[in-house]
Design a protein around this nucleic acid. Structure first.
Length: 265
DNA sequence: CTATTTGTTTATCC
DNA sequence: AGGATAAACAAATA
């Protein structure tokens, strides 16, 4: 389920082991989450290194060890991160276990294995961390960028474009539906047909939903207020919190989308 | 047994 | 060349 705020929530789960040192790394290199990775290098080189920094950018996590070890974690659809106390045993889908000198263990789990582990041992930033688009809540993000993104995808449904990570880092399926619902714009509208007033509204709601998600979910995975679309969109039979009328669901841009026909146009 | 899932990559067509 | 679309990946859940 990880989007912007859920990824931040999971980043925090490893913080109890910050400034501790790796004693061993356990993994099964056959698992799909390690595709393309030099698992032997990860297992050997991370030992004796200190966990010094924990960063997040959109849905991408970057964990730094020592002065040249970069561990990337992408949570995919069902990825999770947690810390195991001494004596606690790994579970079925725990694919990467990093034991620390405190006897805590950092654990990455992922049932569906759409997630991915990345690793680089170099003083310079690896490509997967160096090449990042501006984050939605950063100072360099602005309306002109968003306007330009829509102009590059004029024939795509706006829902599909909101899911492009290069444009809207961290936005996932529920955030995109929430943004469109708050902007009162239907998900299948083509970007080229969205006028300036609507684009300005979308830009504001993109930032608003990102802030709200971080505040409500990113800290302790709290349940969002009932006046968000969030709590009503998951199952069919949901009701629009604005109009009290039924919500609609259908695939838009390849993803199940939920909208309120009595509210969005 | 069938259909569905909060994500990304790859192939293919335009 | 770049945009648009669908399939593939894998396991749990309803």
């Amino acid at each position: 389920m990880p989007e912007l705020a859920e990824v931040e929530y999971y980043r925090k789960q490893w913080l109890p082991a910050l400034n501790q040192t790796v004693t061993s790394v356990h993994l099964n290199s056959d698992k799909r989450v390690f595709r393309g990775l030099d698992c032997a290098a990860l297992k050997q080189n991370l030992v004796h290194e200190k966990f010094i920094e924990s960063l997040v950018h959109g849905k991408q996590l970057c964990l730094r060890f020592g002065d040249s070890h970069w561990l990337g974690v992408h949570l995919g659809m069902t990825g999770r991160m947690q810390v195991l106390q001494a004596g606690e045993l790994p579970a079925k889908h725990d694919h990467l276990i990093i034991r620390m000198d405190s006897n805590l263990s950092l654990v990455f789990s992922d049932a569906r294995m759409f997630g991915r582990i990345l690793y680089s041992n170099h003083y310079l930033q690896p490509d997967w961390w160096a090449h990042r688009p501006p984050e939605i809540l950063s100072p360099e993000y602005n309306f002109e960028r968003v306007d330009a993104y829509f102009n590059r995808r004029t024939k795509s449904p706006v829902k599909a474009v909101l899911l492009v990570q290069e444009f809207f880092p961290g936005v996932g399926n529920w955030m995109a539906d929430e943004i469109l619902w708050r902007s009162r714009i239907l998900p299948f509208r083509k970007c080229g047909k969205i006028n300036m007033r609507e684009r300005i509204e979308l830009y504001k709601r993109i930032r608003e939903v990102s802030e709200d998600a971080i505040r409500v979910i990113g800290s302790d995975w709290g349940r969002p207020p009932e006046n968000w679309l969030f709590n009503h969109r998951w199952k069919s039979g949901g009701i629009c919190p604005q109009t009290g009328k039924p919500l609609s669901r259908a695939k838009v841009g390849g993803r199940t989308s939920c909208w309120s026909p009595s509210w969005q146009s």
